[in-house]
Structure formats: structure tokens, C-alpha cells
Amino acid sequence: MSQILDYDNLNMLKEVIGDDLKSILESFNEITPTVIDQLEQAIAQQDAPEVRHHAHTLKGSAANVGAIALPSLCLEMENMGRAGDITHAADLFAQIKDSYRTLSDAVNQYITTEF
């Protein structure tokens, strides 16, 4: 199974900020569904700039918590938004949603095991 989370990065962060990492990860779980919803809405409304914006945000947060697959999917979506062509965004969005679900599980598991 391909790696979902960059554990080295997470551990490094944990070394720097200790228990605070837990709250960051919890915040991630809390906030990200909203961002995904906003992205979905933007796609539905065919609002390319908004699509770009939310994809960018999601890319950053995911990368921050050490996600490996999700940021690259987000970058693809971001590029679509920048190009202004989001006709095929729905497919990509489905992948993003899947990737997030896996990521979210991994994050939850990390929280449970590490804290």
C-alpha cells in the first residue's frame, strides 16, 4: 500500500511542537470537510477562481499535516481552476474526496496511537 502520510514529517513536527500537534490534526479533521464542501459547491457553480482557491487551500493544509497523495490531486484541480477549464473537475473531485477519506482515517489513527 502506497504511503498516505509522511510520518517522518509528522514526527518531526511532533518533536517541535509536542502535544500541540494533536490539536492541529484535530483542527484539520474539523475544518477540512468544510473546505471540501466549498470546493464541491464551486465546481457545481462552475466558478473556476473559487475552485482554484479552495483547491489551493486544501493542498496547503493537507501538505502541512504530511499528506502525500492529496496535495498532488489538489494541485491538478488548482491548475484546472487557473486555466479556467473545470469541465472534468467532477472526476478529479471524486478522487480528492476518496483521498481525503483515507487521509482522515490515517490522521485519526495517528492521533490515537501517538497521543
Binding site: L21, I24, V65
Partner: peptide, 17 residues
């Protein structure tokens, strides 16, 4: 300055430390 709350919080926590 970042619109992504997760990045913002992480940066804050790291630098506060």
C-alpha cells in the same frame, strides 16, 4: 499571513515554541 487555518495554526504553534 495565510488563508489556510491549518498552516496558520501550525506555523503559530511551531514558532511560539
Amino acid at each position: 499571513v495565510d488563508d489556510d487555518p491549518i498552516t496558520r495554526i501550525t506555523l503559530t504553534k511551531v514558532l511560539e515554541r
